[in-house]
Amino acid sequence: MSMKREKVRFVSGETECAAWHYPGTNGACVIMAGGGGVTKEPGTDAFAGRFNDAGFAVLAFDYRHLGESGGRPRQVVRIKEQLADWQAAIACAAALPGVDPAKLAIWGFSLSGGHIFGVAARTPRLAAAIAQVPNADGPAAARNAMRHQRPAAMLRLTGTGVLDALGGLLGRGPLLVPLDGKPGTVALVTTPDSVDADRALNPGNRYPEWLQAIAARSTFGIGSYRPGRDAPRVRCPLLVLVCDQDQTALAGPAAAAARRAPRGELVRMPGGHYEPFLGGHERAVEAELSFLRRHLLEQADRTAVQVPRA
C-alpha cells in the first residue's frame, strides 16, 4: 500500500484543519474523513492507500476539535461544524496541484458516511460520493443501541451528557466517554459489533496517539441527526455500501436512502459495522474503486469525446 503523502492544512471557520494529501496520477481526487471521533489515520489509511495506488489523489482530513486539527474544546463533535469542514476540504482539494476540479469525489463511513448525503446534496460540483456503512438515521440507530445497553448505563450516559453540556456553557473542559464499550459500561456505543472498532481501525495499536473518546455532550447531536433525508437531493452518482448485520449504524435506513437518491447505487455485504475494514475489506475496496473509475474517469472520458471540436 502506497503511503507517499504530505501534510497540508486548510482554514475552516476560525481554525485550521490538518490533512494528508496523497498526490495522484489520473487527475481525480477523493476527499475522505473518518467516523465519529475517528481521526484521519485509523479512519482512512486502509482505503486511502488503495485509492492512491489506483492513481487517485486523496485528501484525508481531521475535523476541527479532533486529531491534528485546531479547535477548542477538544474531542467535541458538532454536526454543523463538520459539514462546514467538508466544504473547506472540498475547496482545498479542488486547488491541489494535478487535480481536475471536475473530478472530485467524497468518501466517509459511519457518522461521516451520514455526512456524505448532505454534503453531496449541497455541492453540485462533485462528480461522485461514497457513503460506507453510513449512519443515515440517528434516532433509529439510537433506539437500536438501547436494546444493547443496560438501563442504568444509559441513564449515566445521559446524565454525563447533560453535565457536559452545562459545563460547556460555563467554559469547562469536556467530560469524555469511550467511543465503544461492552453493555453496562458508559460509552457512546455498546452494540455487539462496536467492540470490533479497535481490531478494525487500530490493529496492534498502530495508532497509539488516537484518543478513542468523545465529549459526552456530542451524543445529543449524533442521536438526533437524520442525514439520510437529504438523499433525494443528491444529483451526483452515490454509492452506499451497507453491511447486513450492522448493529451500530443499521443497514435498513442506509439502503432506503440509496434507493431514494436519483443516481444511487447500493452494495450489500454480510457482516457488522466494521466488516469493510476486516474480512470484507477487499470486496469493499473493489466495489468502491469500480465506482470511482466509472464515474470519475470513464464518464469524464466519454464526456470529453462527445464535446464537438470548433
Rank of each mutant, 00 (worst) to 15 (best):
L169T: 12
L201T: 09
A251D: 12
A249M: 12
Q245G: 06
D230L: 03
P183Y: 04
T191D: 09
A249H: 07
K182Y: 00
S224P: 05
A136R: 00
D246G: 13
Q149M: 00
A140Q: 10
L238Y: 00
P192Q: 08
Q149A: 07
G159A: 12
R226C: 02
I214M: 08
L163V: 08
P178I: 08
P178T: 11
G173I: 08
G159L: 09
T160G: 13
I214S: 04
C236L: 00
R150M: 10
P192G: 11
T160W: 11
R235N: 09
P174G: 14
A197R: 15
L239W: 01
L239Q: 07
N205D: 09
D137S: 13
R156Q: 14
T185R: 11
L239F: 00
D193T: 12
R259S: 13
R229N: 06
P232N: 01
V234K: 01
L169G: 15
P139G: 04
D196M: 13
P134K: 02
V186W: 11
V189F: 02
V162C: 03
M154S: 03
A261Y: 02
G223W: 05
V133A: 05
Q247S: 15
P174A: 15
R260E: 04
T191E: 11
A136N: 05
A165C: 05
R229M: 07
E209S: 09
L175C: 12
L175W: 12
A251K: 04
R206Q: 15
A216Q: 07
Q247W: 12
A165D: 04
R172G: 14
D230I: 01
P139H: 06
P139L: 05
P227V: 02
A256S: 14
D137R: 03
R226I: 04
A216F: 04
V133D: 03
D246S: 07
L155D: 14
V189W: 06
G171S: 12
S218W: 11
A141P: 03
